[in-house]
C-alpha cells in the first residue's frame, strides 16, 4: 500500500483554479522533492493533504485511509510543517512537545519526547522559552513536533528556509535517517534545486496547480545525462569543437551543452585540447536544474 495517494485533486479560490486535477502518489521510504515556481500551488497542495483546507474535488489516501471519510485516522499517520514552524513562543520547547504529545491518538511516552529532543539536538535549550530560539532552532523544534507521533508520512514546506549551511547539512542527515532507518516517506518542498538534488530520491514538479513531471534523481551515473559548462578560448574554435557533440548555447562567457552522457565528458575535453583550445573551466551537472528549467520553458512556450 502506498503511504500517500493524491487523486484528481482540485480546488478553486476566488474563481481561480489553484489546484487543478492534481494526482500523484508516494512510495514508501523515499524522499520526494516537491518543486515548482512561486505560486504554483505547493503550499496549497500541502494544506489540502493535511485537511487545513477543503478540496472541491478529488481524493486523498494516507496509509489507505480516506481523508474525506476518516479524517482523524488518516491524520494520525502524517506529520507536517506548513510554511513556518509556528510554535507557542511563550512556552518552552519541552512544553510545546508535551502539548502536541497530548493530542496524539496513541499515548506518547516521556522517553519518546527525550528521543526526539536528542535527535534534533536541542537538549541544552529545551527548557528555554521558544521566543529565545534562533530561526534554525525553531525549525528543528518544528521538526521534532511533527515527528513526535512517529508518522509514516512527513511533509515539510521549505524546511531549509533560514538554516545555515551546517544546519542544512544536519537537517539532511536527520531526514535521510528517518527515511532509511524508519521507512518514513517524505515530501519536501523547496526552491533550492541543489538541496533537492542531494537530499531527494525523486522529484515532483508542479506548475499552475498541475503535476508537470515526476522523475528519479538517483538513476546511476551511466544512465543519466549531464549538462556540461565550458569556459575556453579562443571562443570561435571552442564553439566549433563543441558543436560536434550537440547543440551549443552561449551563456555569458560560458558554453553550455545539454544531454551528454558521462562517458562523453573525457571525449569533449580531448577534442578541445587537441585543437589547442585553452580550457579554463569545465563543469558537469547532473540534470535537475536543467530538467526543471526546460520543463518550465516548455510550459512557457505553450502559453
Amino acid at each position: 500500500m502506498k503511504p500517500l495517494v493524491v487523486k484528481q485533486l482540485s480546488r478553486t479560490f476566488k474563481g481561480r483554479k489553484v489546484i487543478n486535477d492534481l494526482s500523484f502518489s508516494l512510495d514508501r521510504g523515499l524522499i520526494y522533492g516537491f518543486l515548482g515556481p512561486n505560486g504554483s500551488g505547493k503550499t496549497m497542495t500541502i494544506r489540502l493533504i493535511v485537511s487545513l483546507i477543503k478540496m472541491d474535488r478529488g481524493e486523498i489516501f494516507i496509509e489507505g485511509k480516506d481523508l474525506n471519510k476518516n479524517r482523524e485516522e488518516a491524520l494520525q499517520h502524517i506529520g507536517a510543517i506548513v510554511e513556518d514552524p509556528d510554535l507557542y513562543t511563550y512556552l518552552s520547547g519541552r512544553q510545546n512537545l508535551e502539548h502536541f504529545a497530548r493530542m496524539s491518538q496513541k499515548p506518547i511516552r516521556e522517553e519518546r519526547i527525550e528521543e526526539v529532543i536528542d535527535l534534533v539536538e536541542l537538549t541544552s535549550r529545551i527548557d528555554d522559552k521558544v521566543k529565545t530560539y534562533s530561526l534554525g532552532m525553531k525549525q528543528r523544534l518544528g521538526i521534532a513536533v511533527s515527528i513526535l507521533h512517529e508518522p509514516s508520512v512527513l511533509i515539510l514546506d521549505e524546511p531549509t528556509n533560514g538554516l545555515d549551511p551546517n544546519g542544512m547539512k544536519e537537517l539532511r542527515y536527520y531526514l535521510r535517517r528517518l527515511a532509511k532507518q524508519d521507512g518514513v516517506t517524505l515530501l519536501v518542498s523547496s526552491h533550492q534545486l541543489r538541496e533537492v538534488e542531494v537530499l531527494c530520491d525523486r522529484a515532483i514538479v508542479i506548475k499552475n496547480g498541475q503535476a508537470v513531471d515526476e522523475f528519479d534523481l538517483r538513476s546511476s551515473a551511466t544512465e543519466s545525462t549531464y549538462t556540461v559548462y565550458v569556459t575556453a578560448s579562443p571562443e570561435a574554435e571552442a564553439h566549433a569543437q563543441l558543436a560536434q557533440f550537440g547543440n551549443v548555447e552561449k551563456n555569458e562567457s560560458q558554453f553550455v551543452i545539454y544531454n551528454q552522457s558521462y562517458e562523453q565528458i573525457p571525449t569533449i575535453v580531448e577534442a578541445l585540447v587537441q585543437q589547442n583550445v585553452r580550457l579554463y573551466e569545465i563543469r558537469c551537472e547532473q540534470g535537475l536544474e536543467e530538467r526543471y528549467f526546460s520543463l518550465l520553458e516548455q510550459e512557457r512556450d505553450e502559453r
Binding site: 493535511v50 485537511s51 487545513l52 479524517r71 482523524e72 485516522e73 491524520l75 494520525q76 502524517i78 507536517a80 510543517i81 506548513v82 510554511e83 509556528d86 510554535l87 502536541f100 493530542m103 496524539s104 491518538q105 513536533v145 511533527s146
Partner: peptide
C-alpha cells in the same frame, strides 16, 4: 495550523 493537523476533530 499545527493544532488542526493533529488527529483530533
Amino acid at each position: 495550523k499545527q493544532l488542526l493537523i493533529k488527529p483530533v476533530s
